[in-house]
């Protein structure tokens, strides 16, 4: 892997040139005390001091709402206007952590298997991920328990790692990453001789994911789901902040009675209406069944069907949870589950 160094003083100049070159920058911006990914107007708005953004970066490829096509009633019929990829911007996601970069793999697994998914695929084709290693973490992070690390380059096109306070080690992982650095080579310097591991946060391994996944294989009927989810509100916040959750709803967004859009929007398996039949029957009628679905989907069904886990250990679900459900603690309980 090619390595470079960029002084902090050149970083914004580089991003400004990338932006001037026609790419949008999607990066952490702090507004009202909350840091989330936004399309930035000025690179000066980018925030880099957070442990974790409130929202993940997944919206760049899987927006919270997205038009799938439009319809218009006409005399004698209906006219459809297909999804148009022409206006999807080329976007550089900057400053996402390795857990968020890694999450594009499970997302691609879900959207890409079997038939593929044009809206997701078209967006992913136009995305370059410039990630930032974690120099700090908190007690809810657990990337190292799910095969990640604060300095993992998996999923990234470029990975930056802060070297002191003056600059960044630049690891150029893919051709897409190289296309972003080569035209601006003058801004980069030779990589310093540093031990990258020493520059990273220490995220303790909280549980053995292999043991958890073995345990889950026979856990469907376990009482643990009721115990763990007794306080769950079913608010769905965990899914909305998750970088790897992909469940969605398809809805109509009418513009008057004669035309409108068919849209998809984020949804959550935690909601009681998610699986409700029109007849009133609900296969997951209580919260413990929905909590079970959430964990089994991520740690059992996805690994089995798509060969990828639906969790990268970012800890956002635990930070967002209004009743303090801590995902890695719950997973640790499952590790020792006696079926």
């Amino acid at each position: 892997m090619e390595q470079k160094y960029i002084p902090k003083s050149s970083l914004k100049a580089w991003l400004a040139k990338v932006k001037d070159g026609g790419k949008q920058i999607y990066a952490p911006v702090t507004e009202g005390g909350k840091t989330s990914f936004r399309r930035v107007k000025s690179v000066d708005d980018i925030s880099m001091e957070h442990v974790q953004t409130a929202q993940s970066a997944k919206g760049v490829a899987f927006p919270r709402t997205e038009k799938l096509f439009s319809y218009a009633m006409q005399p004698g019929g209906v006219a459809l206007q297909d999804y148009d990829s022409a206006n999807i911007p080329h976007t550089v996601v900057f400053g996402l952590h390795p857990c968020d970069a890694a999450a594009f793999k499970p997302l691609s697994g879900i959207f890409g298997w079997d038939t593929g998914d044009k809206p997701f695929g078209e967006r992913m084709q136009r995305v370059t991920l410039v990630s930032l290693s974690c120099s700090k973490c908190d007690e809810l992070c657990f990337c190292t328990s799910v095969d990640g690390s604060p300095g993992s380059a998996v999923g990234s096109d470029i990975l930056l790692t802060a070297v002191g306070s003056e600059g960044y080690l630049v690891e150029i992982v893919t051709d897409r990453g190289r296309a972003l650095t080569e035209p601006h080579a003058a801004l980069f310097e030779a990589a310093p001789d540093v031990n990258k591991e020493e520059l990273l946060a220490h995220v303790p391994v909280r549980f053995s994911v292999g043991a958890v996944e073995r345990s889950l294989a026979g856990a469907f009927e376990s009482d643990v789901w009721k115990q763990q989810s007794a306080r769950c509100l079913g608010c769905g916040a965990c899914a909305f902040v998750c970088p790897a959750c992909a469940c969605f709803d398809i809805q109509e967004n009418p513009k008057g009675s004669a035309s409108g859009d068919r849209i998809r929007c984020w949804d959550s398996c935690g909601f009681s209406l998610f699986t409700l039949h029109t007849s009133g029957h609900n296969p997951r009628s209580v919260q413990s069944q929905r909590w079970r679905q959430r964990l089994l989907h991520k740690f059992s069904y996805m690994p089995r069907r798509l060969s990828v886990r639906g969790c990268t250990g970012c800890g956002r679900c635990s930070r967002a949870c209004p009743v303090d459900m801590n995902l890695w603690e719950h997973l640790s309980e499952l590790e020792n589950l006696k079926n």
Partner: peptide, 15 residues
């Protein structure tokens, strides 16, 4: 179901 093509996450029974 919503999508019908194995993505929206609703209709699964186990895996």
């Amino acid at each position: 179901m919503k999508c019908g093509v194995g993505k929206c996450g609703r209709c699964n029974v186990g895996d």
